[in-house]
Nucleic acid binder design. Structure first.
Length: 439
RNA sequence: GCCCUGGUAGUAUAGUCCGGUCUAGUAUAGGCGGCUGUCGCCCGCCCGACCCGGGUUCAAAUCCCGGCCAGGGCGCCA
């Protein structure tokens, strides 16, 4: 099919701008055909753009013959332009519609589409992800990413006001020595390198110069996990602060969450309505439970966890039922935390590490860091890591490393909390998991 | 890596337990036709499917075995 050129046409209004107050005004709108309702003598097109939908109405006996002919050739998902006159009309959605004088077809769409873009016939997530750009036509899906955008804006603005500076650390790193989760190897010229699993070491080094830094970026973990809250590639929001303790950065974190919730609630009314989700803006300070308190609580529920062990997922699910809000878990056993988390001075068995939970999901994890080189080297060895392979990191500790603390927050998990979406794949545009590498 | 569940038109499902009634039903999308106020428009007609391989049986969408794929869960996830 022959398509039209955009030519000199430029959009004058978005769908959301078209209302009864524009009655009689000529407008140019661009967008995609979401639905066609042909009643014979009258034909309704629902035109969708990034802001919403507007109805285009074509009367068979009144419309220009060229417009009529084009209208008859339209199909779902064609991208088109309409130049027409707004008419106040109580019977139209939003109280107004556009009567076209001219129509241009820019892009056609193969029929039938691989899934229902109106969302009435629901498709499985696998089918939806295979046709992700079409899946993202659905307004609820677009709403998720607008919420994410608002959350990011709120977080950036909050952190900047608190004196944090945004930085970027390398995604390509030299060795897999950070311990813990598996890394993806990459061919780096003639050497082997790895994709970074976190900015941890770099952000710690940078507080020596900038004191308060934050980073928002993708990280990679080659885990075997296949759950609704894990991906191989995820966006992490990290901060690190000099001359600070766990309690200090927990305050930053809870204030950040509070601000994000407040801003998203204020700015994303339409999106939250589309998602049928209400955000309860959490009051600060958040509740804090110690590891020991949680173990006791679980004991009452007949779940026994030996002291020092990590808390298994089913136990976390139960905790989420008991505490359906944002809360901190503190005083973790040192051996359950990473090598760089500082043991308490009065009891080295217990660390100054913490987790921020939302119900049963771990949103963030952080703590006071070790700033003594000797202790850090000792902890590395205890965890079976070689201090030699950390020499570039350790050099920072020779140059006046101050006490410091920080945390990392999983963006997609936060968006899940903000939208009520239960599968992390739904809140990532093109998710990468153990089995999915396309599209 | 382990466990559970599933795989039927473009999409979503019924049928599977208890083999024959299935020439595989329904909705939606798509095609054709009709309809001047729809907003999940409506009405009529049409197109379109049992994941792959093997086995059992007179007979397999249905039972068995293997494979592939998917979903969920667990472990793992500094």
């Amino acid at each position: 099919m022959k398509t039209d050129k955009m030519g000199e046409w430029r959009r004058t209004h978005y769908s959301s701008d078209v209302g009864p107050e524009l009655d009689g005004k000529e407008v140019t709108v661009f967008g995609w055909v979401q639905e066609i309702r042909d009643l014979g003598g009258i034909r309704f097109l629902i035109l969708q753009d990034k802001n919403g939908k507007v109805q285009i109405t074509i009367h068979r006996d009144k419309a220009d013959s060229k417009v009529l002919k084009k209208a008859e050739s339209l199909q779902r998902q064609y991208s088109i332009g309409i130049k027409g006159v707004v008419r106040k009309m109580g019977k139209a959605p939003g109280g107004a519609e556009i009567i076209p004088n001219e129509m241009r077809i820019f892009g056609v769409a193969k029929q039938p589409l691989p899934l229902d873009i109106t969302g009435r016939t629901r498709a499985d997530i696998d089918v939806r992800l295979d046709a992700r750009v079409l899946d993202l036509r659905r307004e609820e899906n677009q709403a998720i990413f607008r919420v994410q955008h608002a959350a990011l804006e709120a977080a950036r603005s909050f952190l900047s006001k608190q004196g944090f500076m945004e930085v970027f650390t390398p995604r390509i790193i030299v060795s897999a020595t950070e311990g813990g989760s598996a890394l993806f190897p990459v061919a780096y010229f003639k050497r082997e390198a790895f994709l970074a699993q976190s900015p941890q070491l770099y952000k710690e080094q940078l507080i020596l110069d900038f004191e308060k830094v934050f980073e928002i970026g993708p990280f990679f973990r080659a885990e075997e996990s296949h759950t609704r809250r894990h991906l191989s590639e995820f966006i992490s929001l990290d901060i690190e602060e000099a001359f600070a303790t766990a309690e200090d950065v927990m305050k930053v974190l809870e204030e950040l969450i509070h601000n994000v919730c407040k801003d998203v609630t204020g700015n994303c009314g339409r999106e939250l309505k589309l998602l049928k989700h209400k955000i309860e803006v959490p009051k600060t300070p958040f509740k804090r439970f110690t590891y020991d308190e949680v173990l006791e609580e679980l004991e009452e529920e007949k779940i026994h966890i030996p002291w020092g062990e990590d808390i298994p997922t089913p136990a976390f699910r139960l905790l989420g039922k008991l505490h359906p809000y944002y809360y901190f878990l503190t005083d973790w056993p040192t051996k359950a935390k990473a090598f760089y988390i500082k043991p308490r001075d009065d009891n080295p068995e217990i660390s100054e590490g913490f987790d921020l939970m939302w119900r049963w999901v771990e949103l963030s994890s952080g703590g006071t860091r070790i700033h003594s080189k000797d202790l850090l080297v000792k902890r590395l060895s205890e965890q079976g890591l070689s201090p030699e392979s950390f020499k570039h990191h350790l050099q920072a500790f020779d140059y006046g490393m101050p006490p410091h603390a920080g945390w990392g927050l999983g963006l997609a998990r936060l968006v899940m909390a903000l939208t009520g979406i239960r599968n992390i794949r739904d809140v990532v545009l093109f998710p990468r998991d153990r089995f999915r590498l396309t599209p």
